[in-house]
Amino acid sequence: MRVGIPRGLFFYHFYPQWKTFFNRLDWEVTTSPPTNKKMAGGGILTAVSEACFPVKVLYGHVLELAGRGVDYIFMPRLVSIEQRSYICPKFMGIPDMLRAQIPGIPPLIDLCIDVSRNEGNLYRELDRWAKKMGLRPGRVRKAWNDSTRATCELEAICRRGYTLGEGIAIWEGKTAVEPGPGDLTVGVLGHCYALNDPLISLGLFERLREMGAAVVTSEMLDPQKIEAAAARLPKRVFWTVGRKMVGTALMLDEDPEVDGLIYLTCFGCGPDSMIARIIEHRVNKPFMLLTVDEHSGEAGVVTRLEAFCDMLRRKRRLELAHNLSPYGEFLYSH
């Protein structure tokens, strides 16, 4: 059996796990190539116009895989990947949206992943799927349990200072280019599927590094410390990614090594419209919200990034000259 995993959305978190899962069942796994304009164009034409750009890009990847004649496409119905927390509500409808809008689509494996209460739901779902496929439930459960180690492996790689995209490449045995040290350090926040897809982020990581800034993402930090920082909000954020972003921002805000924070958001993202504001109001360090969409010209992003790095450098020069604390009360009083 050959299963295709589209390179979009939570691919960047779970590809190693999903690949391991199917490999344990002796299935062959194939992925779509990195997003290119043609795939994005196909996605834009097919997807509902209200969807955010990363969802449209996912359509492009599914179309690509459909054209390659895979037996199945793995598109889990992601509801919750940790207790008491949820993924963006759009994601639970994605398998249905794909079926409705892509005629002749290969059969989807749409395992419902919902561990918001406990793991029980997930195992029942695995059993149901095993039965449907004529597999032994015990074997499927074991394959799943074994596969979770891959996520830990990916996380361990990223903790050494790699982005998720680079982490996946290393996990697959490729040698990643060692990012050189920069004279600036910028914390980059946002959804993994926007940040790690250079077509969506307009090459954000690469551009920042070219401008001499080292990049820090939430995957490079201690998840427990992120949780602890996020817990400082008066109300718990119940979006998995949103809470991670708040925690990361608050943590990096206190890190003297970090010069500023950039939040990349995709136009029309509901959770981000709130999370980015919460962060903006809570951090003291320079913060920039970058909004991108399908038509976003690179010039606009380049100008903003350049200006942001310039600002951080000139500011540091001023601080050195005055020998003052950079974030004194006269800066941000809100």
Binding site: P286, A307, M311, K315, R317, L318, H322, F330, Y332
Partner: peptide, 8 residues
């Protein structure tokens, strides 16, 4: 502030 961009 003090001739340096701090936000934009």
């Amino acid at each position: 502030r003090d001739g340096v961009v701090i936000d934009f």
